[in-house]
C-alpha cells in the first residue's frame, strides 16, 4: 500500500476522533477514491462570514503529503483571496509554504482563518480586495454578507 493511502486512512481516523467545530464535514466523497475529499467549513462568529456554510472540494495528489492538496471553494464566496468563479484559493500555506506535517484538517483550519484574515495585497477577487484596500469596511461587509446570504446560507 502506498504512503498516501496509509496517511489518508490515519487522517480519517484522526478526524473522527477529534472533530473540529469549524469543520463539520471532512471526508472522502466516495469510499472507492480516497483522493477526492469534500469539506464544509463554517464562517466564524466574529467574521463577516457568520452564518455561512461553505463547501470545499479537496483533491489530494499522489505525492501527498510532500505536495500540498488542491483545495477550492465549491460554494460561491466573495473573498479577496478566492477566485469568485473558479473558487481557487490563494493561500501560501497551500502552495509554497506547505509542510508535510500538515494535515487536511489543518489545511481546512487555515482556510477558516483566511476567511477572518483576508490578505488584500495578493488578491484573486480584485473587487473585494479594492474595497478593503480603500478602507470601505461597510461596503466590504455588505458585499460579503450579500453573497453569504445568496449562496452560503445555512439551512
Amino acid at each position: 500500500m502506498d504512503t498516501v493511502t496509509k496517511r489518508l486512512i490515519k487522517e480519517i481516523k484522526n478526524i473522527q476522533n477529534s472533530p473540529n467545530e469549524q469543520i463539520p464535514e471532512l471526508h472522502p466523497i466516495s469510499d472507492d477514491d480516497l483522493l477526492e475529499w469534500k469539506a464544509v467549513i463554517l464562517g466564524q462568529e466574529d467574521s463577516y462570514y457568520k452564518g455561512g456554510r461553505f463547501e470545499l472540494a479537496i483533491s489530494v495528489p499522489k505525492t501527498y503529503p510532500i505536495q500540498p492538496p488542491k483545495i477550492r471553494f465549491v460554494t460561491k464566496i466573495c473573498h479577496p483571496n478566492v477566485h469568485f468563479k473558479t473558487g481557487e484559493i490563494c493561500l501560501d500555506l497551500l502552495k509554497t509554504e506547505w509542510s508535510p506535517a500538515w494535515t487536511l484538517q489543518s489545511a481546512c483550519m487555515a482556510i477558516c482563518v483566511l476567511l477572518t484574515q483576508p490578505e488584500p495585497s495578493s488578491p484573486l477577487n480584485c473587487d473585494a480586495a479594492n474595497l478593503l484596500r480603500c478602507g470601505d469596511e461597510l461596503g466590504y461587509k455588505s458585499l460579503i454578507q450579500m453573497y453569504v446570504n445568496m449562496y452560503a446560507k445555512q439551512q
Partner: peptide, 25 residues
C-alpha cells in the same frame, strides 16, 4: 507517480467494510 493510463483511484479501492466500521475506533 508517472502512470497516467490507469486512474489512481483503482489503486485505492477499499472494501466498504472499512468505512462501515469507521466509528468503531
Amino acid at each position: 507517480n508517472f502512470e497516467t493510463s490507469s486512474p489512481f483511484s483503482k489503486h485505492n479501492s477499499f472494501p466498504k467494510s472499512f468505512f462501515s466500521s469507521r466509528h468503531n475506533n
